[in-house]
Design a binder for these strands. Structure first.
Lengths: 340, 340
DNA sequence: ACACTCACGTTACACGTGTAACGGTTACTC
DNA sequence: GAGTAACCGTTACACGTGTAACGTGAGTGT
């Protein structure tokens, strides 16, 4: 960022420039442009000011404004590092729209993470009004840091809550549990679980596996759960299919519809098929899963409307010292098709 | 955003608080914390200041800092409204990382768009150092607005350049042209083009169609191009398959691997198959396309490394008055498989 | 004629930084 | 012992806003 050259560009116009051009004081400009205090200025000068602002192409300086106001409307959506499907990205888009409607400035922050709470410090420097953070990457210390820097609401988005922060729970264990219940009901007792080797996806895959384990345990059916790492390549899928046969598995949860499709195809290429001998279930309910034959069963997930969360943000921001909220967002439902 | 309550939270510590605690002046605090001017302060006071800052959990105020400095390190990545595939999202992630390494603060702005240049004004308020904007949503007026607000570099990311802005071209017409060349070479003369009805995807689909048309024209083979709208539902795909037969098409470009897969499946369900009577080609080269039988041919696209673009940003930011740059990013290549 | 209100603007300060210009010691040089 | 340089720190201002407090002149009621 070596941007130090003598450039001739005129500096952007300030409200003082507008005031000068309109022949009024800067305060008046501010009153007009922000529609403050109803009848303070006459219609005539309002017009003069507006004309001057338009003429100069005046755009207020957000940093100066929020410095003075002591608050930014910023809402950080941070820590989204994992590649996400259409469900979650649609949810994010909706959330951003809704926050915008509520007067906030939603901003997505990529994984600019260094080590430890370095990224969190960078967030705090922006003095956002609220911070959403997806599952890992926020420690209790990080929450404290943010709160002390003036952030009025810290919300975590993920499987498990973080002390001190409001918890928007998307319990991925439910996804696993839902799939497991279905497979057990179908009489399957030797269940393989496809797990992506990509570490960025562990946030989702680990709790899904845990959910399966818990559900199997709870059912007391004596069923076996077998983790099966998969690389998202055809070769890796072929190996996985071989392992399925060696282990005599009769049920398979695919982490994802994509991973499930990969596994199902590999099974078929190896002479197996679904639902016999192996019942296959995915998650996300992608349209593409319905293109395979047999059609892929899947765990469908739903998230609440963004508007609902924006209202929740309003509430927790209005009352920063209230005890941490806890709210379940995710609802799951199994869509049974031919593959199971 | 009604957040006006009397809350008891202590305001975040300022550099003045640190100075007071360390028993020095605010200037000294600034010198120490920014490592400015080598030997200005003794090692001893440095330690005192650092200790005080740590003790208070001091985090500098980005808005105040950049107000004073007259520049923010912000780089806006704006206007990304269309749902994007793994290729583009990977590219974005890399770009963000690289920008971060170069000392910028990359920030993703969702489609908070209102009408006209309203969104652009909102970007200008942030006084970013540079703005990336994907294809639509930036008019020449918008570019001017940004430049006058102090933005040192405006870059468009898409098929066609915008006057006044640097152009990072990802010419989607090439994708269509590549597919068309392949289909023509395979002897196809009646080519259908699957087009998503989702208006958000028109940014990509329209130029891809145009590329096909241009390639067919250039080849002078007298081939026919038939646009086929598709809804991303199985029902819509079935209708599309029927239309394929009615029009006696012998080639099909699928916009996308996903859309191509949908179409291919529908063709098969209707008794057709690929590559005969209809050769099918997609784009994106998704792994999932290789799961179908026949395996899907596809246009593979490549984008440059993010680091390369970050360096480009450095250059254009250093020299804001240089004439607009123009750079092709996209390279395409056909991966022929069994479906064509 | 005086007090009072009303309508319209302005003056003045604060927000939290960075940094140029300016002291005040101490130690060294001639 | 006076000049001076080196070292270490501070004072003072600017960045662009929002807004509370304060005029000011004209109209109005008695």
């Amino acid at each position: 960022m070596d941007s130090d050259r003598t450039d001739t560009a005129a500096p952007p116009p300030t409200s003082a420039d507008v005031a000068r051009l309109a022949g009024v004081s800067r305060a008046t400009v501010s009153f007009v442009l922000n529609n403050t205090a109803g009848g303070r200025v006459s219609e005539q000068t309002r017009l003069k000011v507006r004309a001057a602002a338009d003429r100069l192409g005046y755009v207020p300086h957000a940093a100066a404004r929020s410095l003075r106001a002591g608050r930014t409307g910023l809402v950080l959506l941070a820590g989204n590092t994992a590649p996400i499907g259409p469900l979650f990205s649609g949810f994010y888009r909706e959330l951003q729209d809704a926050l915008h409607r509520h007067g906030y400035t939603p901003v997505l922050l990529g994984p600019t993470a260094g080590g430890g709470d370095e990224a969190v410090r960078a967030w705090a420097e922006l003095r956002p009004t609220a911070v959403f953070c997806v599952d890992p990457g926020l420690t209790p210390d990080g929450v404290g840091l943010l709160r002390r820097s003036g952030v009025r609401a810290v919300l975590t988005l993920g499987t498990s809550p973080v002390p001190g922060a409001h918890a928007l729970i998307m319990d991925q264990r439910e996804v696993g549990a839902c799939a497991a219940a279905h497979l057990l009901e179908r009489g399957r007792r030797r269940i393989g679980v496809v797990l992506p080797t990509d570490p960025a996806l562990a946030v989702f895959s680990a709790p899904r596996l845990a959910g399966i384990r818990a559900a199997v345990e709870a059912a007391g059916s004596g069923a076996v759960v077998e983790p099966l790492p998969l690389d998202y390549t055809e070769e890796s899928a072929a190996e996985l299919a071989a392992r399925c046969r060696d282990l005599a598995l009769d049920g398979l949860f695919g982490y994802n519809d994509e991973y499930a499709m990969l596994a199902l195809r590999a099974l078929q290429d190896a002479g197996s098929d679904a639902p016999h001998p192996v019942a296959v279930v995915g998650a996300d309910d992608l349209l593409l899963g319905r293109l395979l034959r047999p059609r892929l069963s899947s765990v469908r997930m739903r998230l609440p409307a963004g508007e609902e969360l924006a209202e929740l943000v309003d509430r927790v921001v209005a009352d920063p010292d209230a005890p941490p909220l806890r709210r379940e967002l995710l609802t799951v439902e199994l869509v049974a098709r031919e593959s199971s």
